[in-house]
Design a binder for these strands. Structure first.
Lengths: 340, 340
DNA sequence: CACTGTTTTGCAAGCGTATGCAATGAAGGG
DNA sequence: CCCTTCATTGCATACGCTTGCAAAACAGTG
């Protein structure tokens, strides 16, 4: 019943060569004469042989599997990132073992342990904070860790992000140019580098024009929190006339709350700017002005970084930040002097 | 430099027992005295030993990895499914190796081959059609394949879906009750069982009340196609007064097109019903009436099915379809006699 | 043809674990 | 105290492959 798996030995017998010959034919970079290659290929074909990756992993210590730790799959940015990462890695012969983790340090710890058991060649964490202790241990084990869309101040880690500080600054400048003076910020989670950097860039950007944030509330990258923050902001004698929201995911909640709960118009009553430029931001229902994170370049850089460090065996922490453009849509007014 | 991995042998030496003893301590169901267990646990703790899953896989033939083949990550339903599946499997000690595949048979073929190389214990395909030839080969290799949210007529495969026929029927009945008479359908891809079943249920449901579909267009589960279909439907002397859309993902595009391109009101001018009940459907911007696919139960059933077949070793094709409720929201009117 | 340099090839040793088997020891009954 | 029974333990092997090493085949040169 059990269709026994074909091994290299069986192929060897049928081809009339040694088992090592078979192995060499299927090992890129090994030497074999044209004649044996032909014989082995034929026999393998006939038997339907495929090398056993597990056995190969045992020997070489390389699994060609990358562990991906991911947290917020309800934010459209991450499925998208997952898809791109998976495809890019597949292209290079790697595959993705997915772990979901809430953002509690213990859970992440546990997940990373598990990951190491699987002999993954590298780890990518998407918006998940990793204690530097943990990355040290991974590095000691020769396993590169790259943080995608998150950074860790001070720690010696690999990180690929967009230029969040600059992004925040761009938003500030743009909103000032649009004539706004009471600009609030529902920030990304303060425990995340992205959240902090965007907030900082925003504050700096306003300061450069002699302004100050009207109010800042931590939205925790959470829809409900962002909605509540919106209510709190607007329930004031001097509500903001523009809100920069820490990411698109929250911005949608903010827009929903403003329009359907508070009955306000966007951008007439309040202008909204997000961050990420997920596909949903371009849908007409939201049509959200936002800072685009250059997903393709970020993914490419992440994949290159992991693979380079796997190949070189050296892990010299690197960090990259890509600049992303501000995409203007109808959730904001035209800047002064550009009205149509 | 290279922090060598700790092996069971080193633990054995430190604990003063044989390597087999160590193995047995870490193998559930193996026998060892309380004393050795203590000694081994202690030594393992001190050295930071963790059993090597790859070596274990070599011996047992079980990797505790499930391959997940997924296609449409831009439809929110699938990230959600992915997250739930991953969590449910993690809970049972399994992990998920993700493969993305376009829905071309060749690509799927290639992906499944790869998957087998990794010695996965089972395969879950999410909305991906698998040739029965392929499942036969997997079964021959003793690897269960479960299709999630898709079925294959006639073939001997495992499938977990919601009751799509009945769901379509419910929509038809509801829309008739609301007083609609020109009810169109932008159907799910005709090459998918879900698309066909929903369409069939819808047609049957209308027929049961003596009605007929106003018009049916294949939306291919694609936003652009659905938008175009919407334009085509509405550009008529007798446009529909209600549209049942094959899934939420397309329904959002339809709503966007109706409102922002054609300037129509929902549900006053046209009522819209979707299918899936993704989180986005509950957001106030859409507030879409839709048939809920009972994700939790579907995931649970899928996981149970895979694991049962792994454990039993027997692969007796099973198929389950869960009934899902119609969730009424403001994209449709109140049914006759229930107006407030 | 002898000699050297270069491929190609087979042999055999492992990679880290699980497990059948036989040996050991402990426990219990008479 | 002896014999039986059963749980525990160690030994040795196997899982399917890669790879260092040395022998063998080949090619090229004078």
């Amino acid at each position: 019943m059990e269709h026994a798996r074909i091994t290299s030995l069986q192929v060897a017998e049928r081809a009339g060569v040694s088992q090592s010959a078979v192995s060499r034919v299927f090992t890129p970079g090994a030497s074999a004469s044209a004649k044996t290659i032909a014989k082995v290929r034929k026999a393998a074909e006939e038997l339907g042989y495929r090398p056993n990756r597990v056995a190969r992993t045992m020997i070489t210590g390389k699994s060609r599997i990358i562990g991906l730790v991911v947290a917020y799959l309800d934010n459209q940015f991450y499925p998208q990132a997952l898809e791109h990462l998976s495809n890019a890695l597949q292209e290079k012969g790697y595959h993705v073992l997915v772990f979901t983790a809430t953002n509690s340090p213990e859970k992440v710890e546990e997940v990373m342990r598990d990951l190491l058991d699987f002999q993954v060649d590298g780890i990518i964490t998407a918006s998940v904070a990793v204690t530097s202790d943990l990355t040290v241990r991974c590095n000691a084990a020769g396993i590169p860790v790259v943080m995608f869309n998150r950074d860790q101040d001070g720690a010696d880690v690999n990180a690929v992000t967009s230029d969040n500080v600059n992004g925040g600054r761009k938003v500030a400048e743009f909103l000032v140019q649009c004539g706004h003076r009471r600009i609030a910020h529902i920030s990304g989670w303060d425990g995340s580098s992205t959240g902090r950097d965007r907030r900082r860039g925003f504050s700096e950007g306003l300061a450069a024009h002699g302004h100050k944030p009207h109010q800042i509330i931590d939205g925790m990258y959470n829809r409900d929190t962002a909605s509540q923050a919106t209510r709190d902001l607007m329930d004031s004698l001097t509500p903001p006339d523009a809100i920069f929201v820490g990411n698109d995911h929250m911005a949608f909640a903010v827009m929903d709350t403003l329009r359907h709960e508070l009955g306000l118009k966007i951008p007439q009553d309040v202008a909204i700017v997000g961050f990420d430029d997920v596909p949903l931001a371009a849908w007409p229902s939201y049509d959200l002005t936002t800072v685009r994170q250059p997903l393709n370049r970020m993914v490419e850089a992440t994949v290159d970084m992991v693979i380079a460090q796997i190949d070189e065996g050296v892990i010299a922490p690197r960090r990259v930040a890509f600049d992303g453009p501000l995409i203007r849509r109808s959730s904001t007014r035209q800047p002064k002097g550009q009205e149509t």
